[in-house]
């Protein structure tokens, strides 16, 4: 699992880690049972405090995204489809919020905005479709 963090963009590092893991899990880039990097390994690799990594992992565990095993690295949890779908929806909704604000600021009405979004969807191929 690849986790990339920008220490200097203002977003708290633990939140970046949580977001990235959550995204990768909900997008299906990592399947259930995949191992997360060890706390110490990740902290050394990213040059961040191991407590930050622990904090992120703790939050992920609380959300139910990962499972702790005794003495072994954390693994991605198996989650029921309904929860998955809900998580994905939430994720997309969060990403759409700044777009909505931008639309307001630009003075674009809803119809034009939705048209633009449909066009964007058409331009981007789904991952399954690209694997032919």
């Amino acid at each position: 699992m690849l986790i990339v963090v920008d220490s200097h963009n203002g977003v708290p590092v633990y939140r970046q880690i949580v977001d990235q893991v959550r995204f990768q899990v909900t997008a299906g880039l990592v399947g259930p049972g995949a191992e997360l990097p060890s706390t110490r390994g990740l902290s050394q690799e990213l040059g961040i405090n191991p407590m930050t990594v622990s904090k992120a992992y703790g939050l992920l565990e609380a959300e139910g995204l990962v499972v702790r095993r005794a003495g072994l690295p954390l693994v991605v949890a198996k989650r029921p489809r309904a929860v998955e779908a809900e998580a994905k929806a939430t994720r997309l909704g969060a990403l759409l919020e700044p777009v909505a604000v931008a639309a307001r600021q630009l003075g674009i009405d809803n119809e034009t905005a939705l048209d633009l979004f449909r066009r964007a969807l058409k331009d981007v191929t789904r991952p399954e479709e690209s694997r032919t």
Binding site: R40, N49, P50
Partner: peptide, 12 residues
């Protein structure tokens, strides 16, 4: 960067 990595290493 070396010093900070070193400190993190000793810390862990």
């Amino acid at each position: 960067q070396t010093v900070l990595r070193l400190l993190l290493d000793r810390f862990s």
